[in-house]
Amino acid sequence: MFTMGEDMMKQWANNWEKMMGEHLEKLVHNEKFISEMSKSIAATMTGKAFYSKALDEQMAAMNLPSRTEIIKIMQKLTDIEERLIDLSERFEDFADAQAKPAAKTAPVAEKPAAAAHAPAPAHDSKAKKHKK
């Protein structure tokens, strides 16, 4: 009797899953639904942009830097960091190119085998070990 009840429950759950699955699958693939949902997201984003602008103006009125301005500064710093990385790479390449002819003329025995395959130092000179 109990097994029959359990089987019925399982059958009911399977039918529910199948029905809901088909229904929701159709819904999330429906272009009209996607379009309406996108309009709702667009309205939220427009609202967020308006709110952020109003907040920026309030901060400016109080002579305080706004979040937008701080992010712009951070992005400028990122740009400077990127330029520095590019420059240091160019410098390394230049130094390598200068060192190569000198290495060719140097006696082979003077070049330690281990050093030839030693890894280059990490860019920030702080290679970190990750433990498991």
């Binding site: 990122t78 960091e81 990127e82 990385i85 990490a122 290679a127 070990k129 990750h130």
Partner: peptide
Amino acid sequence: GVTPREEVYNAG
């Protein structure tokens, strides 16, 4: 991640 590793370079 489970495989032992080390960071050999970073940029930003």
